[in-house]
Design a protein around this nucleic acid. Structure first.
Lengths: 262, 262
DNA sequence: ACCTGAACACCGTTCAAGT
DNA sequence: ACCTGAACACCGTTCAAGT
């Protein structure tokens, strides 16, 4: 038992931090700028988790004292905002997305969904930040956090015959779907490693928190432990697109009580 | 400009903290226990936000030094886990939920959904914690965080004719739906107040982050600012229940490519 | 039995001083 | 121009000491 007051897993952490510093050594000659700091922060979070990210440790990872960062970043909160922006904007560099080549609004929404999912899976430790940082405007709904993304979403739907109301309703349904699915998917990824992190002897002991009082859980535990995220994502996405299509084609009879087309 | 290094809004915070201490004065005579601490933590988060919750400040709110808390709570992380558990379990005290009185699985799922939504709206600042804390087992999907809740969910569906696989798939779809909708709903609540928090003169200036480059956004901004959360929640819930019902009744023809009933 | 003071190892952030 | 040392106000946490 060490008497450090850090979060759970110190010794390991210190070791890896030093490793990171050594790795950055080559590009080091004072080349410090905002973008390099943001990239380093993303890498650090991916490797050690959000809780481990500290101005001092990030500085160390860049071969510099923490105070040097303040020349390029106003503070820790802004740094996190920058991390989120960088990760989200990276969607536009994804060649497999290229929204402007989309054929029809369904294709557009599918490309966008898959692009955001790739981002989430590439940075599972960053994604919760994408989900929880207060957005730029109250009507910006994570994970579609950039005005550019929302604009292109709404424009596509409106150009395809959706009314403004229907497009906005679709935007809300779509963002809820993405956030729910992807946040749970990355949470599950994180849960795996945190199980292995636990120092309590063999992994057998942890496996199943004694389910004797929960017969249905015990019976379905093997099923619950199977990962079907990809297929479920496709399924839910398809279902949402069907729902939106129904709205679009039923646009003539106005008052049928659904929010989606009011 | 003060030179405190706290988060955004100190002077105000200190004031309210002192107020809280005074208010607790009556029940004070040393009555400190785990439950009272958890309740105080929930109240503190509701009032000042998660970022403001500190062992020292929570102690102060209870009229005690921070170190006294460690007799009842192993540490800050456990305290947050306790907060989440307490809030989630409070569902079973909600008389409007009473799952055992539910008539049919649809009614069960609707009662559960509305109960969780009431919790989220009652503690909007706590809910992100419900969403993001690593769950007890990898297959526990927020916001349905207690084994009891998952057990009763699965049992209800299985008793209603769902296969184990279909019940598990339904559990996944249902949790994704709840998490996405409710997290976005409480985020929006938080976004309102953080706008008012900003000290930049009149609220007119903030309103709309200059949308000149985003015509679709500018045109639909009034629509985007309307809050239709409740109706959208009902709509999406109804849609999900329909989808599950389809799965249940199409259970005979097995391989139709959907995950929901494989 | 229950709380506190003092201490320790960390934080974020500022700023004068170094190069 | 760019980075650092030293300092400040905070953290979480431990533990011997008080009552």
């Amino acid at each position: 038992m060490e008497k450090t007051s850090d979060d759970e897993r110190d010794p390991d952490l210190v070791a890896v931090t030093e490793g990171t510093e050594a790795a950055t050594e080559l590009t080091r000659p004072s080349g410090l700028d905002r973008d390099r700091i943001l990239q380093a922060a993303i890498g650090f979070i991916d490797e050690h988790g959000l809780a481990a990210l500290t101005m001092r440790r990030l500085g160390a990872a860049l071969g510099v004292e923490a105070m040097a960062l303040y020349r390029y970043v106003p503070g820790r909160e802004d740094l996190l905002d920058g991390v989120v922006d960088t990760v989200v904007e990276s969607l536009f560099d994804d060649d497999d997305v290229h929204l402007e080549h989309a054929i029809g609004w369904q294709d557009h929404l599918m490309r966008l969904a898959h692009g955001v999912r790739r981002i989430a899976l590439a940075h599972p430790a960053v994604f919760p930040l994408v989900a929880s940082r207060p957005p730029a405007a109250p009507w910006v709904r994570p994970p579609l956090r950039s005005l550019r993304m929302v604009e292109s979403f709404l424009r596509t739907l409106c150009d395809s015959g959706f009314s403004d109301q229907a497009a906005v309703a679709a935007y809300r349904a779509y963002s809820s779907f993405l956030l729910g699915h992807l946040l749970l998917e990355v949470t599950q990824i994180g849960a795996q490693v945190s199980l292995l992190d636990q120092p309590e002897g063999d992994a057998e002991a942890q496996r199943a928190t004694d389910l004797t009082d929960y017969p249905a859980l015990m019976r379905t535990e093997p099923l619950l432990s199977q990962d079907k995220s990809a297929a479920e994502f496709e399924d839910a996405l398809e279902n949402l697109l069907d729902r939106l299509e129904r709205v679009l084609h039923e646009a003539k009879n106005s008052d049928d009580g659904s929010v989606l087309d009011l």
